[in-house]
Simulated scan of single mutants.
Amino acid sequence: MAERILIIEDEEKIARVLQLELEFEGYETGIAHTGTDGLILYREQQWDLLLLDIMLPGLNGLDVLKRIRATEFNTPVIMLTAKDDVEDKVTGLDLGANDYMTKPFEIDELLARIRAALRFKPQQQEFAKEQDEFFHEYKDLSIHEQTREVKRNGRSIDLTPREYELLLYLIKNPKQVLSREQILDAVWGYDYYGDTNVVDVYIRYIRQKVDKGSKQPLIQTVRGVGYVLKEQVNEA
Protein backbone atom coordinates (compact mmCIF):
# COMPACT_ATOMS: atom_id res chain seq x y z
CA MET A 1 0.00 0.00 0.00
CA ALA A 2 1.38 3.42 -1.01
CA GLU A 3 2.48 5.76 1.76
CA ARG A 4 0.36 8.89 2.05
CA ILE A 5 1.81 12.41 2.28
CA LEU A 6 -0.18 15.53 3.13
CA ILE A 7 1.11 18.77 1.59
CA ILE A 8 0.07 21.92 3.45
CA GLU A 9 1.34 24.75 1.24
CA ASP A 10 -0.38 28.02 0.32
CA GLU A 11 1.51 28.57 -2.97
CA GLU A 12 -0.55 26.51 -5.39
CA LYS A 13 2.20 26.10 -8.00
CA ILE A 14 4.67 24.76 -5.42
CA ALA A 15 2.03 22.45 -3.97
CA ARG A 16 1.22 21.11 -7.43
CA VAL A 17 4.89 20.50 -8.30
CA LEU A 18 5.38 18.65 -5.01
CA GLN A 19 2.28 16.58 -5.66
CA LEU A 20 3.44 15.56 -9.14
CA GLU A 21 6.94 14.66 -7.96
CA LEU A 22 5.67 12.65 -5.00
CA GLU A 23 3.07 10.79 -7.03
CA PHE A 24 5.75 9.99 -9.64
CA GLU A 25 7.71 8.40 -6.78
CA GLY A 26 4.71 6.25 -5.88
CA TYR A 27 3.28 8.20 -2.93
CA GLU A 28 -0.37 9.11 -2.50
CA THR A 29 -0.91 12.79 -1.73
CA GLY A 30 -3.38 15.32 -0.42
CA ILE A 31 -3.17 19.11 -0.59
CA ALA A 32 -4.41 21.94 1.63
CA HIS A 33 -3.67 25.63 1.03
CA THR A 34 -4.44 27.02 4.51
CA GLY A 35 -3.43 25.97 7.99
CA THR A 36 -7.02 25.43 9.06
CA ASP A 37 -7.87 23.27 6.03
CA GLY A 38 -4.64 21.32 6.51
CA LEU A 39 -5.43 20.59 10.15
CA ILE A 40 -8.94 19.43 9.26
CA LEU A 41 -7.65 17.18 6.47
CA TYR A 42 -4.94 15.79 8.77
CA ARG A 43 -7.54 14.87 11.40
CA GLU A 44 -10.04 13.41 8.92
CA GLN A 45 -7.65 10.97 7.23
CA GLN A 46 -4.59 8.83 7.92
CA TRP A 47 -1.22 10.22 6.77
CA ASP A 48 2.30 8.81 6.87
CA LEU A 49 4.09 12.18 6.60
CA LEU A 50 3.32 15.91 6.45
CA LEU A 51 5.06 18.58 4.38
CA LEU A 52 4.13 21.72 6.27
CA ASP A 53 4.84 25.29 5.14
CA ILE A 54 5.36 27.86 7.90
CA MET A 55 3.89 30.94 6.19
CA LEU A 56 0.23 29.96 5.85
CA PRO A 57 -2.96 32.05 5.93
CA GLY A 58 -5.09 31.59 9.02
CA LEU A 59 -3.22 29.21 11.28
CA ASN A 60 0.47 29.38 10.43
CA GLY A 61 2.56 26.23 10.14
CA LEU A 62 3.93 26.47 13.67
CA ASP A 63 0.40 26.73 15.09
CA VAL A 64 -0.67 23.70 13.05
CA LEU A 65 2.35 21.73 14.26
CA LYS A 66 1.67 22.69 17.87
CA ARG A 67 -1.92 21.44 17.65
CA ILE A 68 -0.86 18.19 16.02
CA ARG A 69 1.85 17.48 18.55
CA ALA A 70 -0.52 18.19 21.44
CA THR A 71 -2.07 14.76 20.85
CA GLU A 72 0.05 12.85 18.32
CA PHE A 73 3.79 12.28 17.99
CA ASN A 74 4.17 9.53 15.40
CA THR A 75 3.56 11.22 12.05
CA PRO A 76 6.81 12.71 10.68
CA VAL A 77 6.60 16.42 9.84
CA ILE A 78 9.01 18.21 7.51
CA MET A 79 8.72 21.99 7.73
CA LEU A 80 9.07 24.15 4.61
CA THR A 81 9.82 27.88 4.62
CA ALA A 82 10.99 30.63 2.31
CA LYS A 83 12.89 32.23 5.19
CA ASP A 84 16.31 31.03 6.26
CA ASP A 85 15.44 32.03 9.83
CA VAL A 86 17.25 30.21 12.63
CA GLU A 87 14.57 31.18 15.16
CA ASP A 88 11.83 29.59 13.03
CA LYS A 89 13.92 26.44 12.63
CA VAL A 90 14.56 26.16 16.37
CA THR A 91 10.89 26.80 17.20
CA GLY A 92 9.71 24.21 14.68
CA LEU A 93 12.11 21.55 15.94
CA ASP A 94 11.24 22.32 19.56
CA LEU A 95 7.54 21.89 18.73
CA GLY A 96 8.20 18.44 17.30
CA ALA A 97 9.14 18.84 13.63
CA ASN A 98 11.34 16.01 12.35
CA ASP A 99 13.18 18.00 9.70
CA TYR A 100 13.38 21.38 8.03
CA MET A 101 13.97 22.62 4.48
CA THR A 102 14.40 26.18 3.21
CA LYS A 103 12.96 27.19 -0.16
CA PRO A 104 14.13 26.97 -2.85
CA PHE A 105 15.28 23.37 -2.41
CA GLU A 106 16.28 20.52 -4.67
CA ILE A 107 13.50 17.99 -5.05
CA ASP A 108 16.00 15.11 -4.83
CA GLU A 109 17.13 16.30 -1.40
CA LEU A 110 13.54 16.62 -0.22
CA LEU A 111 12.76 13.09 -1.45
CA ALA A 112 15.81 11.77 0.40
CA ARG A 113 14.68 13.44 3.62
CA ILE A 114 11.18 12.04 3.18
CA ARG A 115 12.60 8.53 2.78
CA ALA A 116 14.74 9.01 5.89
CA ALA A 117 11.77 10.26 7.94
CA LEU A 118 9.59 7.35 6.83
CA ARG A 119 12.33 4.82 7.69
CA PHE A 120 12.50 6.25 11.20
CA LYS A 121 8.71 6.11 11.69
CA PRO A 122 8.51 2.41 12.76
CA GLN A 123 10.91 3.15 15.63
CA GLN A 124 8.70 6.03 16.73
CA GLN A 125 5.60 3.84 16.55
CA GLU A 126 7.23 1.15 18.68
CA PHE A 127 8.11 3.74 21.30
CA ALA A 128 4.57 5.14 21.11
CA LYS A 129 3.08 1.70 21.78
CA GLU A 130 5.08 1.52 25.00
CA GLN A 131 3.69 4.91 26.01
CA ASP A 132 0.04 4.28 25.00
CA GLU A 133 -0.97 2.98 28.41
CA PHE A 134 -0.01 6.31 29.94
CA PHE A 135 -1.76 8.49 27.35
CA HIS A 136 -5.50 9.12 27.48
CA GLU A 137 -7.47 11.15 24.97
CA TYR A 138 -11.09 12.09 24.39
CA LYS A 139 -11.89 14.48 21.53
CA ASP A 140 -9.45 17.42 21.97
CA LEU A 141 -8.75 16.67 25.66
CA SER A 142 -5.66 14.65 26.59
CA ILE A 143 -3.83 13.53 29.73
CA HIS A 144 -0.40 11.94 29.95
CA GLU A 145 0.00 10.11 33.25
CA GLN A 146 3.80 10.03 33.25
CA THR A 147 4.20 13.78 32.78
CA ARG A 148 0.80 14.69 34.32
CA GLU A 149 0.28 17.03 31.38
CA VAL A 150 -3.32 17.99 30.72
CA LYS A 151 -4.20 19.71 27.44
CA ARG A 152 -7.28 20.72 25.53
CA ASN A 153 -6.93 21.70 21.90
CA GLY A 154 -3.22 22.31 22.54
CA ARG A 155 -3.86 24.53 25.58
CA SER A 156 -2.14 23.42 28.79
CA ILE A 157 -4.39 23.15 31.84
CA ASP A 158 -3.12 23.46 35.41
CA LEU A 159 -4.99 21.29 37.91
CA THR A 160 -4.61 20.62 41.60
CA PRO A 161 -3.75 16.98 42.52
CA ARG A 162 -7.39 16.19 43.39
CA GLU A 163 -8.74 17.88 40.24
CA TYR A 164 -6.21 15.89 38.20
CA GLU A 165 -7.26 12.55 39.72
CA LEU A 166 -10.92 13.35 39.12
CA LEU A 167 -10.40 14.30 35.48
CA LEU A 168 -8.16 11.26 34.96
CA TYR A 169 -10.95 9.00 36.25
CA LEU A 170 -13.44 10.63 33.87
CA ILE A 171 -11.20 10.34 30.82
CA LYS A 172 -10.45 6.69 31.60
CA ASN A 173 -14.19 6.06 31.51
CA PRO A 174 -15.49 8.22 28.63
CA LYS A 175 -19.20 8.13 27.80
CA GLN A 176 -19.89 6.19 31.02
CA VAL A 177 -22.25 7.78 33.51
CA LEU A 178 -20.45 7.73 36.86
CA SER A 179 -22.34 8.17 40.11
CA ARG A 180 -21.06 10.42 42.85
CA GLU A 181 -20.40 7.34 44.96
CA GLN A 182 -18.29 5.75 42.22
CA ILE A 183 -16.30 8.94 41.85
CA LEU A 184 -15.81 9.24 45.62
CA ASP A 185 -14.54 5.65 45.85
CA ALA A 186 -12.16 6.05 42.91
CA VAL A 187 -10.81 9.52 43.67
CA TRP A 188 -11.19 10.03 47.42
CA GLY A 189 -10.97 6.39 48.51
CA TYR A 190 -13.28 3.88 50.20
CA ASP A 191 -12.51 5.30 53.64
CA TYR A 192 -13.91 8.74 52.79
CA TYR A 193 -16.91 9.56 54.96
CA GLY A 194 -17.48 13.18 54.02
CA ASP A 195 -20.28 14.83 52.08
CA THR A 196 -20.83 13.59 48.50
CA ASN A 197 -21.32 17.25 47.55
CA VAL A 198 -17.53 17.50 47.40
CA VAL A 199 -17.78 15.81 43.99
CA ASP A 200 -20.05 18.60 42.72
CA VAL A 201 -17.63 21.22 43.99
CA TYR A 202 -14.64 19.66 42.23
CA ILE A 203 -16.57 19.05 39.04
CA ARG A 204 -17.33 22.76 39.01
CA TYR A 205 -13.62 23.54 39.50
CA ILE A 206 -12.42 21.39 36.61
CA ARG A 207 -15.25 22.55 34.33
CA GLN A 208 -14.03 26.11 34.78
CA LYS A 209 -10.60 25.03 33.61
CA VAL A 210 -11.32 22.33 31.02
CA ASP A 211 -14.35 23.84 29.28
CA LYS A 212 -13.15 27.45 29.55
CA GLY A 213 -13.08 29.09 26.12
CA SER A 214 -14.42 25.97 24.37
CA LYS A 215 -17.70 25.97 22.44
CA GLN A 216 -18.23 22.30 23.23
CA PRO A 217 -18.38 21.42 26.96
CA LEU A 218 -17.21 17.88 27.69
CA ILE A 219 -18.24 17.30 31.31
CA GLN A 220 -22.00 16.67 31.44
CA THR A 221 -24.34 16.36 34.41
CA VAL A 222 -26.78 13.45 34.54
CA ARG A 223 -29.50 14.62 36.90
CA GLY A 224 -30.01 12.45 39.92
CA VAL A 225 -27.08 10.19 39.01
CA GLY A 226 -23.72 11.84 38.51
CA TYR A 227 -21.45 12.92 35.68
CA VAL A 228 -20.15 11.77 32.31
CA LEU A 229 -17.35 12.84 29.98
CA LYS A 230 -18.88 13.18 26.52
CA GLU A 231 -19.81 15.72 23.88
CA GLN A 232 -22.98 17.66 24.47
CA VAL A 233 -25.80 16.69 22.15
CA ASN A 234 -27.71 19.73 20.92
CA GLU A 235 -31.36 18.82 20.60
CA ALA A 236 -33.29 20.38 17.74
Results as ranks from 00 to 15, higher is better:
His33Cys: 09
Leu170Phe: 15
Glu163Ser: 02
Val233Gln: 07
Glu137Val: 11
Asp10Cys: 10
Pro122Ala: 10
Leu229Phe: 09
Met1Ser: 13
Leu52Cys: 02
Glu28Trp: 09
Arg113Gly: 01
Gly35Asp: 07
Pro174Ser: 00
Met55Phe: 11
Ser142Tyr: 07
Val198Ala: 12
Val228Pro: 00
Arg207Gln: 11
Met1Cys: 06
Ile5Glu: 04
Ala112Trp: 01
Arg67Asp: 05
Val228Ala: 13
Ala236Ser: 07
Lys139Cys: 03
Ile54Lys: 08
Trp188Thr: 00
Gln220Leu: 08
Tyr100Arg: 05
Arg180Glu: 11
Tyr138Trp: 11
Leu20Ile: 12
Glu44Leu: 07
Glu133Lys: 15
Pro122Phe: 09
Met1Tyr: 11
Glu137Tyr: 03
Val64Lys: 07
Phe127Met: 14
Arg204Trp: 00
Arg152Leu: 04
Glu87Ala: 14
Gly26Ser: 07
Leu6Met: 02
Arg4Trp: 06
Gln125Thr: 12
Val86Glu: 14
Glu109Val: 14
Ala236Tyr: 07
Glu87Ser: 14
Ile5His: 07
Leu22Asp: 10
Ile7Val: 14
Glu23Thr: 08
Leu229Asn: 00
Thr75Gln: 06
Leu50Glu: 02
Leu110Arg: 11
Glu23Val: 01
Phe24Lys: 15
Asp63Met: 13
Val187Glu: 02
Leu56Ser: 03
Thr36Tyr: 08
Ser142Asn: 12
Ile206Val: 15
Val199Trp: 06
Glu130Asn: 12
Asp85Asn: 15
Leu20Asn: 13
Gly26Gln: 04
Lys129Cys: 00
Asn173Ala: 05
